[in-house]
Amino acid sequence: MSAAASRPVGTRVKGIYAHLDSFLAGVERLKSEGLTHFEVLTPLPRHEILEAVYEGRPSPVRWWTLTGGVCGITTGFLLTSLTAIQWPMINPGGKDVVALPPYAVIMFECTILFGALATLVGLLVHCGLPGFWLDSSLKDPRVSDDKFGIVFLRASESDAPKIEAALRESGAIEVTSGDDTVYEVSNV
């Protein structure tokens, strides 16, 4: 791949907000203008933010949890049953060789264990973690402090002015375009 081909197409446009209501107004304004290919940056997971951006769409992480849980209960059953069948003459406590009540404990534990580990994998996959290679415009330490951000990674030349105007008019305290600056917050 050539260097030119790996360069992002379009311009980065980023707005930083000091106030939650301005930020939400910016999100709604952009959505109303059909400019929806943006990412938001927030210091905390407030529901009104996620509702405004994702509009109630559920996260696919749930399918990872379900798959992990189903794999877990199956593994728990197969592990206990198949290993017991391998030595069918050993019959502790007069129980059946494949005895579901005692095996239910192992199946339950495997369900939880596999479900949790699958959820972890799903979380990492969908969050893009580890995220060391995120675009530099998304790496803004001010956001972990108290600021909110809206970032367009690849705004087209025609959209960029409209986006900048929307960000400014909704109350962004800073609007940058094509900016690679790394910001720092004061050390505590």
């Binding site: 938001v40 996620l50 994702y54 559920p58 992480v61 949890t65 479900g115 799903g122 995220g131 995120l134």
Partner: peptide
């Protein structure tokens, strides 16, 4: 921190996963 940046995408999936972890725990 695994490169966490507080993007909307990260929070969206994080909150869902956190709920599932809680339900499993």
């Amino acid at each position: 921190a695994l490169g966490w940046r507080g993007t909307g995408r990260q929070w969206h999936h994080y909150m869902a996963a956190y709920g599932f972890f809680a339900a499993l725990a």
